[in-house]
Design a protein around this nucleic acid. Sequence first.
DNA 1: TTGCGATACTAAACACCGTTCGTTATGCAA
DNA 2: TTGCATAACGAACGGTGTTTAGTATCGCAA
Lengths: 198, 198
Amino acid sequence: MALPLTDEQVLDVRERIRRVAEGQIAREGISAISLRSIAGELGWTAASLYRYFASKQELLSAMRIAAHNRFADRIEAAHDSTANLWDRSRAIGDAYLDFAETQPAAYQLMFAYDQEDKKDPPELQRARKRSSLTLTTYVVEMVDAGLLQGDPVVLAHAFWASLHGLVVLRMAGQLDHSPPFDLLRRETMRLITRGARA
Amino acid sequence: MALPLTDEQVLDVRERIRRVAEGQIAREGISAISLRSIAGELGWTAASLYRYFASKQELLSAMRIAAHNRFADRIEAAHDSTANLWDRSRAIGDAYLDFAETQPAAYQLMFAYDQEDKKDPPELQRARKRSSLTLTTYVVEMVDAGLLQGDPVVLAHAFWASLHGLVVLRMAGQLDHSPPFDLLRRETMRLITRGARA
DNA sequence: TTGCGATACTAAACACCGTTCGTTATGCAA
DNA sequence: TTGCATAACGAACGGTGTTTAGTATCGCAA
């Protein structure tokens, strides 16, 4: 093979590599992933991957972007699944938890806090913002409809952080001797909407 | 040196190693830590560390335990800093965030969700429970005093998960274009106590 | 048809990692 | 003085990400 690849073909190969990596990460976990194992599955050598990604970090970044977009797709689908705003918020919460449960590696990739690179590539920044925005929209709608009151952006972050907090505490094995997760989730969401003050 | 170490001395050496590792983790980050660098700072060889820890995993586990205990100490100190229950809850929140900000590596260690070992050593389980319990006590007091209503354990988890969620979202760089962190924190806590329903 | 240039991929090496193993050197007991 | 137990070492193993020089193959021009 010596004929140069078009930009499109390069993108295709990048995507193929990313898919293989995602498969391994889903099967074996994040820490088990290596350039050699990815290349092996492609019948290649680790060095070949450097034609398509400048580093492992850049490959992980691409995977993060894809994960964010898959996530946002799910949330948006849940958003569009019903017109009733209370049902909608419930559906979005369900979709959120379903994503975290069925694609834990992708979820961890999205919200990993050990990333060395302080400078995210612009596309990742955009993907992050999309995830964030998707989780804000429905709250804005609820505030507009008069179902909730307060700054919708702040409110959305409260819902998001609570759900995320529960998910990662569970992933860290910190909720093993706590009340059932479903109960915690339901009650936490209820508290934010209604409060706990006596 | 060929004379056998007493159990106490072994514990001392374990603690010395742990301290060196904690220093490096605080300075260089979690991923930069290596047995060779730790041993180097002690004037030793990496292999020597295996007299005191069966694996790097076990060393990390000891560091996790120490981090949990330092954390619980801080929270308990905040708890005892005032008798007014509202002030107390505020002080605990402050202490929580201060710990996460000033000792991010320790915080990440405590709540890392990429741990391979599903089986935590009993001492780590105890340390985890202590952290969890410490964050529950003051809520129980507030419910007992009639300041809050509901299941105190569930309520405590709601506060905890929300705070933790905010912290790790910020660590993941996901709050860079969001409202100021202090505002998010204050409003989220306020929402859980008072609710957002119109 | 032949030969050239471009290039996708390889093979080998580098420095690092966690871990294992056989060896060394020390200090007490006999 | 001899012998033993053992704390720490040094070298190695297989793994990692990454770099480098080389190979083999293709399209195209002569």
